[in-house]
């Protein structure tokens, strides 16, 4: 029985000039269901590349990557899209909301592509926004909201299709400390519900919220540490 997330000797190179820049030089990593993992490391050492591989946003150049037992290398682009939509919710540093859509429509977006009927997706999107405490912002565009509010909309969007895995790439990077704490509390809460959370960060205090820290240096896993004493999710995810 394989792990939920399983990477074996994963490499990723980017063409640069005439040659290839090796962003990942052979990553071995296994994450079980329900884990809360922080991926840390200095910038430029492959954290975000690893995150895009785990997130099925990109294919590895070499090695094997299985998500939920599915080998990603053999998938078509559309099959990758389906796997993402079914399995992963994304939270990005820059929020990445569609600027022309309202908060509600942004949360609905994954459900639109998953062909969820309109009435149902509207109901669920509204419920998610209420859960995140920003129900009154449903009709607003991203520019009308604060960074913290936008990131909470993004978390609602990540949860729209109830995925087992949440991938967060520097989710607090653009937030003030209070908003950052609220977002981290929400992520911890989602993990407490049984979701797997993978958090990419360069910030040690953010990484400290996770129960496991994988440190990436120069395209390799430098160390992989479990912290049974890490703070639990009791900090509260604002209900749900």
């Amino acid at each position: 029985m394989s792990a939920f997330i399983e990477l074996e000797g994963v490499t990723k190179g980017f063409p640069v000039g005439g040659g290839v820049y090796p962003a990942l030089r052979g990553i071995d990593l296994a994450v079980e269901r329900g884990e809360f993992v922080a991926v840390t490391g200095p910038s430029g050492h492959g954290k975000s590349t690893l995150m895009s591989i785990i997130g099925v946003l990109d294919r590895p150049t070499g090695g094997r990557y299985r998500l939920e037992g599915v080998e990603v290398a053999g998938l078509s682009e559309d099959a990758m899209a389906r796997l993402r939509s079914r399995t992963i919710g994304f939270v990005f540093q820059g929020f990445h909301l569609v600027p022309t859509l309202t908060a509600l429509e942004n949360v609905e977006l994954p459900m639109v592509y998953a062909r969820v009927p309109p009435a149902e997706r509207r109901r669920r999107a509204q419920a998610l926004l209420e859960w995140a405490g920003i129900g009154e912002h449903a009709r607003q565009r991203p520019v009308q909201m604060s960074g913290g509010e936008q990131q909470r909309v993004a978390i609602c969007r990540a949860l729209a299709l109830d995925p087992p895995l949440i991938l967060a790439d520097e989710p607090t990077g653009n937030l003030d400390s209070h908003s950052g704490r609220v977002v981290l509390d929400q992520l911890a809460g989602l993990n407490a519900e049984g979701r797997t959370v993978v958090l990419v960060t360069h910030d040690p205090t953010v990484a400290a919220r996770a129960r496991r820290e994988v440190h990436i240096f120069d395209g390799r896993v430098e160390w992989d540490r479990r912290r049974p004493d890490a703070p639990s999710a009791a900090g509260g995810a604002g209900g749900g």
Binding site: G55, L57, E77, D78, A81, R82, R84, S85, F90, H96, L97, V98, P99, L109, P110, Y113, A114, R157, A160, L161
Partner: peptide, 16 residues
Amino acid sequence: TREIGIRKAVGARRAD
């Protein structure tokens, strides 16, 4: 381009 990336990340296929 960014918006297209977002849409793809949340499950949009090529045809979408």
